[in-house]
């Protein structure tokens, strides 16, 4: 069987930056390798300054690797053609404030060679998708942070790319907006679009990503399938609904009777603060 071309292939990426003292070099990324298969959602996590954004910029050709190679669907990232199949949302983007939402999407669509009716239909479709159809003719200067992030996501999707690169896609967005972006990532995954995202919100990465890489001080310290990385192999979880106290007591006694097994914890599972917030705010919504 022929080998599938990876959506993203980063091989031994090294990136050094010159500091203000010209002779000193700062190594932002030191030998990172990532391979993302088509249709995967890959999350790159790491603290500030660990090299996440530099890795993404190298993949987009915004910085040139000191050594190593980045490729998108087999094409070298330094080639303009490699960006035909890519949508990118940078961290905290500020788009042209003088343009309306629809004009912004038209501008980016035209840059990708789209014109006429196809472009207009695509603009309307994306505005509906990101829930901004009511703000389509409002200038971006009057958009909130969450709206800017959503219009940014729409521009990234304008040419219907096969790969979406998201740098902190929910930074500064409220929980509802954050949930909407997460739902959209699920929807894109269903359509077979590859997503490469980096985020500080680990819970969110855990929810949407198939594979995760942890980068620290410019080096990949851990990488793999999410369930393999976070599973605690020697523990088993049983969650019961409407269990009576008698049943709980019997189970506890049964476990206690087995000397090889230890009851680590029992009690009521807790929802997340995010789920609580969403449930309460959606119930009160008109």
């Amino acid at each position: 069987m022929a080998e599938v071309t990876p959506a993203v292939e980063i091989c031994d990426l090294v990136k050094d930056f010159k500091t203000s003292f010209r002779r000193q070099m700062l190594r932002a990324v030191g030998g990172v390798s990532i391979r993302i298969e088509p249709g995967e959602v890959y999350g790159l996590i790491g603290p500030n300054g660990s090299g996440k954004s530099t890795t993404m910029k190298a993949l987009l050709g915004l910085v040139a690797p000191t050594s190593g190679r980045c490729a998108i669907f087999g094409q070298d990232s330094l080639r303009v053609d490699s960006r035909r199949e890519v949508g990118f949302l940078p961290e905290n983007p500020y788009f042209y404030k003088h343009l309306s939402g629809a004009e912004t999407l038209r501008f980016y669509g035209k840059l990708c060679g789209m014109r006429g009716r196809i472009l207009e239909e695509r603009v309307s479709e994306l505005l509906v998708l990101v829930d901004l159809e009511n703000a389509r003719d409002r200038r971006l200067g009057g958009y909130s942070k969450g709206m800017l992030q959503r219009i940014g996501l729409a521009q990234a999707l304008v040419q219907d790319p096969r790969l979406l690169i998201l740098d902190e896609p929910t930074a500064g967005v409220d929980p509802m907006g954050s949930r909407q972006i997460r739902d959209l990532i699920f929807k894109l995954r269903e359509r077979g679009i590859t997503v490469f995202l980096c985020s500080h919100l680990l819970e969110q990465v855990q929810e949407v990503c198939d594979r995760v890489g942890i980068i620290f001080q410019g080096k990949m310290v851990k990488e793999g399938r999410l369930e393999d990385l976070i599973a605690i192999e020697d523990q088993t979880e049983i969650v019961l609904r409407d269990a009576s106290p008698e049943l709980i007591a019997r189970i506890t006694a049964l476990v206690a009777a087995n000397p090889e097994t230890e009851l680590v914890r029992s009690g009521k599972p807790r929802t997340t603060l995010e789920r609580l917030f969403l449930r309460e705010t959606q119930r009160d919504a008109p």
Partner: peptide, 14 residues
């Protein structure tokens, strides 16, 4: 400064 350039150069724009 606004990072708008990133979004433009991330499209197939030489």
């Amino acid at each position: 400064e606004d990072r708008t350039l990133y979004t433009i150069l991330a499209k197939p724009v030489p």
